[in-house]
Design a protein around this nucleic acid. Sequence first.
DNA 1: ACCTGAACACCGTTCAAGT
DNA 2: ACCTGAACACCGTTCAAGT
Lengths: 213, 213
Amino acid sequence: MPPSSRPLKPRKRPVQSRSAFTVESIRDACIQVLLAHGAERLTTTRVADRAGVSVGTLYQYFPNKQSLLLDVLERHLDGVVREVEAACAATRNADAATIAARIVEAFFDAKFRDADTSRALYAIGSDLGAPALVTRLAQRAQRAVGATLRTARDRRFEHPEMAAYLLSTSVIGPVQGLLESGAPAARVAALRHELVRMAQAYLRAAGARPRSA
Amino acid sequence: MPPSSRPLKPRKRPVQSRSAFTVESIRDACIQVLLAHGAERLTTTRVADRAGVSVGTLYQYFPNKQSLLLDVLERHLDGVVREVEAACAATRNADAATIAARIVEAFFDAKFRDADTSRALYAIGSDLGAPALVTRLAQRAQRAVGATLRTARDRRFEHPEMAAYLLSTSVIGPVQGLLESGAPAARVAALRHELVRMAQAYLRAAGARPRSA
DNA sequence: ACCTGAACACCGTTCAAGT
DNA sequence: ACCTGAACACCGTTCAAGT
């Protein structure tokens, strides 16, 4: 059946604790299969096998393959956004340079903490539905960033949302490229530092000093 | 058969002119189906139907579905890179701000010239093999950018390749976000302008003035 | 409540037969 | 040289039957 013709969300919620364990093992198996076989070899049967259940069980909790992949992707991205939000909360009222550095570093580090998984999950990014999810989570990050930018003690931004958008999204490409190419740690570290410089340079250019022009 | 177990490149080359037409119509049909039905409804039979040929014919020129998608994606990206390369060639020996502006604008405009197609093609980005292709073309762009940065009349860069990498990749995220969200033209224009500012601010920070410190 | 796995439909790919 | 389309294998999804 065409997977896009049905609602994707209404996956069943586990009621008993043994099934909560089942669902979690299916998610784990999904990532493992993704890492071991790649996205195109990822089969619902294979995931179920690896999880030690039958396909039927998988379909009791995930209405289709895509919803499983999106669920796994969402959990990953949610963790990343959570760390960005924490960085924002922690740098309120700091100067713009510090804010820029902490935010960029938070995103960067969250992505590279488990680089293999991050990389494998990019493979999901195409399935229709993923863009929407990514957009939604990106907006959450932008809200946090924008709110913090407004508190910068040494800068006043005319369009904090736009600055937040650029700050949040400009990191994506460089990071994605590093993950995909499997760059060595030294290069990763160098680019992390360079990204911070870029973010700071941008905020310096985009925000005016509040008192003295 | 698993699509990843066989070499993907050796697709047949058309010899007679009528078959050259056939191949081109298959490529066109592929984009049309992508736009009309989306990536997950894109079926080799559907593409062949739309192209007015049989599936068998499609498989004479493309060893499998993925190679067709990659071919279409490659043509698109190649065009984009070509425009970036042209912008680089045209701004040699200009000042860093001009170089930054022309390069960012070239990429931006190439992507938004046919925004629908650009957006639809992101759906391919996942198929294993696409990351490699994207990486390869991104490197081509970076070489061009790096070479031009070295000629900037008012700046001297310690690591022109790194600056080129950041300049090239930092545009990807913002543009992708705009395409996916279908942002209105006004917002697109505003962000285009802001991206230029960011690129310029970064080059100012990353490159030293040659004579007077 | 939860699990199983054979059965069904659809799609990628092939190949013997045509022009 | 090029094209056709029925045939085959594999995978997503379902559902009747089990505990």
